[in-house]
Simulated scan of single mutants.
Amino acid sequence: MMSRNWFITGTSSGFGRIMTERLLERGDTVVATLRRRDALDALQARYSDRLHVVALDVTDTQMVRQVVDQAFARLGHIDVVVSNAGYGLFGAVEEVSDAQIRDQINTNVIGSIAVVRAALPHFRAQGGGRILQLSSMGGQIAFPGLGLYHASKWAIEGFFESLVQEVASFGIEATLIEPGAARTQFGRGSMVMSDPLEAYQTLPFSARREVLAHESYTPIGDPEKMVHEMIASVDVSPAPLRLALGSDAYRLMHEALAKRLELLEAQKDIAVSTDASS
């Protein structure tokens, strides 16, 4: 297999860290970005010739542009950009603070868009490239208590639905990665929690808050297997627009899509009746 050059954001833990490790093991080259460079010191020492670690806060759009430009300049050619940086925010929409809302959108939406926008001119110049955007089953379904997280993922999915049509003629392809709950740090003590309001403590999602915040929370998804499929998707052409990972993702997304189609069909007559008569 021919080696590839990768640019990956959010590599200190979770999917980004695992992907970086697996790619280096198989002989690929990785530009790995994260907020704290020392989180990859051990890997850097082992793969100093093929791992380039760069500090990056994806909410700093100017910095994103500089880091992406420098990565393409250093390697000459980057095959795959993986926009992985992001996190979850839990809280009823009335509970989350204005600052928490801004941080969630700035990281998960604007940060992801900034990374892709910075890469596009380089991909066009080199005649193509592949983008893997970490979304979530939460970009197709919604749970109470995760309204702002869902807002960020539904937003990025709409962005990519449009983007892939704009850049197809340049040989640029993209895949939205939609994992279910996985055994990463995402929901095992690392999720940002809003300050609870008394009015919401008797509602069903209050129990979910306790589960997600607890270190013993063990989802069904195997992150190693998920990362394997993410990497393998780059060999598929044309690129799949979406990659669902996890039995929970498949089941819940299937149920949600079927229900939405059912509701749409029930409104067909109303929809048609509102067309202009001439």
Rank of each mutant, 00 (worst) to 15 (best):
R130P: 00
I131W: 00
Q133P: 10
G138C: 11
I141Y: 02
A142Q: 07
A142I: 02
F143P: 03
G145H: 03
K153Y: 00
K153G: 01
K153T: 03
K153N: 01
I156W: 06
I156A: 05
S162C: 04
L163Q: 01
L163G: 05
L163T: 03
Q165F: 04
Q165M: 14
V167T: 02
V167G: 02
A168E: 10
S169R: 15
S169A: 14
F170K: 11
T175A: 07
L176H: 10
P179T: 12
Q185I: 08
R188I: 00
V192A: 07
M193I: 02
P196R: 06
A199S: 15
Q201I: 05
L203V: 11
L203T: 12
R208W: 12
R208I: 09
L212D: 07
S216L: 00
Y217W: 03
D222Q: 06
P223K: 06
P223S: 10
E224H: 11
V227G: 09
E229K: 15
M230F: 08
P240R: 09
L241Y: 11
L245W: 03
G246E: 09
S247P: 11
D248A: 01
A249P: 02
M253W: 01
L257C: 13
A258D: 07
E262N: 14
A266F: 06
Q267P: 09
I270M: 13
V272R: 15
S273W: 15
T274F: 14
T274H: 13
T274M: 15
